[in-house]
Design a protein around this nucleic acid. Structure first.
Lengths: 326, 326
DNA sequence: CTGAAAGCGCTTACAG
DNA sequence: CTGAAAGCGCTTACAG
């Protein structure tokens, strides 16, 4: 491994001078700088980032916790986060919690030790109980995609999930539906609350798993439980995708006999037949703002302040919803 | 920030002793160890991993390059990789290349500098030209999910994509199909070759984008180009998902009028109606083996040897394929 | 504009 | 079993 010292000897200067031409912090005489650069090229020198990190106290890496990477929600969030991190010269350390509290705790403890300049925590399911671990963290922490109780220990950039549910309810109500069924994931209480603010008279059915198969099964059950149901609200698009299949299997035409509305706006939503009406969540925007917030905090050397930022979801009307049949 | 020195003073020992109780490399008298542990707890000491890395030369982090994280293929690969990394006490540094050669090069150059103990590169699209950058890398590099020309500069753990295509062809041929159409992504030449080894007489249509929408469009075009087509082979399931929609739109019953077979076995494949016949790719197994190979190499301090390992794909017959109509 | 010194927080032989 | 010394490869003031 070639070191800065090697380069310095080759160029006939000291390693501080090499450091100076690399960092640009201090002006170096052009002729000297040229010699140094030549030496760097000849030797194929590449700085040891670990040594630099120890000296500067910065690793230029931020940690990102997500529950999972499968599924477009977190996948898009990760991609967007990496994009803006990359644009700022930062690397991404990824940790998935996978509904495993102990694993989450372990990862958290591992990162507390100065291997990361900041931490972004997306999704609340597995980490909320371990948040106290982070109160005295020597680096900024921001939360995003937070859905249930917003903690006040850390800044959060999230989406107004309640409003998302409400938009779905409004849409269905406007179409004349009165007693829709809700197909839900257990963690989506806030979305359901929002929906109920518009349409209180609805039965909630929980899916066994957050997949199209789970959505298909729970939709079939909901339809069997109340054959008069005219509309289905799925708290997540993946459930709605399955609901579309269930409707087909039950011989219900969508949207003539049954309206189906989802939430999230996954890529598949626009290719189903009929295309899925849904409430789009601005996940990329959220990821971008969260990363920018946390990077600003590391730049300023202070914990980011301010209250939670709630991003606005947006209703996307496609073909799967229509007027209630009477 | 509390340091090892602080702990040592508190416990009335030197920092070497603290280091010894932490590492367990050298036996420490129980009473002393207890005092040290107590001091650690009281002070809330947590070791500085960067300093440790500089001293040991190991960061316990491995870098993973993927073209994208959206889509179940790479998402599952990432999850599995992180699982086994985590089990071995390693962290995951994630880099996405996003069809951007310059970005890939930059990331590669950034990692060459001792911030990572090893590198895993999944997917060939954007990196192949930069592989030479890695020949003298001071850490092991392994390639996986490599589809086209297998480089001999680095070990590779991948899937026998040619055989995957061949299995699809075999299945269709066995059902009596003679002139199927192929719906392909441009990068899937190997899969097509395998398919053609069984069914040479087929027209290949390239999708504009690797999404269900792209698959839907290209399937519609293929069906329009040759209305007598009895079967469709999509080189990736996401295309097949769209093809199912196109068939529906064209009034072709699947599988009675038209067989559709995909490749990969994405989660959605089992919930379409009919469920999608496909060739399953053992991506999690591949990820696991690749990580284990690279970790073994870092443990042994040597570049991993051996030829490419090719994992076997597997035909999964579901409802979307049937005998050719005559 | 360039060099000598100290330090970042750990680990690793090596004495005692 | 414990301590004194050197070193990992950088950066950061500080003199000259």
């Amino acid at each position: 491994m070639v070191t800065m010292q090697d380069v310095a000897e080759r160029a006939g200067v000291t390693k501080q001078t090499v450091s100076n031409v690399l960092s640009g912090r201090v002006a170096v005489r052009p002729a000297t700088a040229a010699r140094v650069r030549a030496a760097i090229d000849e030797l194929g020198y590449t700085p040891n980032l670990v040594a630099r990190s120890l000296a500067t106290g910065s690793t230029r890496t931020v940690g990102l916790f997500v529950p999972t990477v499968v599924g477009s929600f977190y996948a898009e969030l990760i991609e967007e986060a990496e994009d803006v991190l990359d644009a700022h010269g930062y690397h991404l350390l990824l940790c998935t919690t996978r509904q495993d509290g102990e694993r989450a705790r372990r990862h958290l403890a591992g990162l507390t030790s100065r291997s990361v300049d900041a931490l972004l925590i997306a999704g609340d399911e597995d980490l909320i109980e371990h948040l106290p671990l982070l109160v005295g963290a020597p680096f900024p922490v921001v939360l995003c995609a937070w859905e249930s109780a917003l903690p006040d220990t850390h800044p959060v950039v999230t989406i107004d999930y309640r409003r998302a549910g409400r938009l779905a309810g409004q849409h269905l109500r406007g179409l004349g539906h009165r007693r829709p069924a809700v197909l839900a994931s257990p963690a989506h209480g806030v979305r359901i609350d929002g929906f109920r603010a518009e349409l209180p008279d609805c039965a909630v059915h929980f899916a066994a798993e957050p997949t199209p198969a789970g959505g298909c099964a729970v939709a079939a059950a909901a339809l069997a439980a109340d054959p008069a149901t005219t509309a289905l609200f799925a708290t997540h698009d993946v459930l709605a995708l399955g609901a579309l299949e269930a409707a087909r299997a039950a011989g219900r035409r969508v949207p003539e006999d049954l309206s189906v509305i989802g939430l999230d706006d996954v890529p598949e939503a626009r290719v189903t037949r009929p295309a899925l009406t849904t409430v789009a969540l601005p996940k990329r925007l959220m990821a971008r703002q969260a990363v920018e917030l946390v990077l600003r905090a590391v730049a300023e050397g202070a914990a980011p302040g301010g209250a939670a930022r709630l991003l606005e979801p947006e209703l996307v009307v496609r073909g799967s919803t229509g007027p209630a049949a009477r």
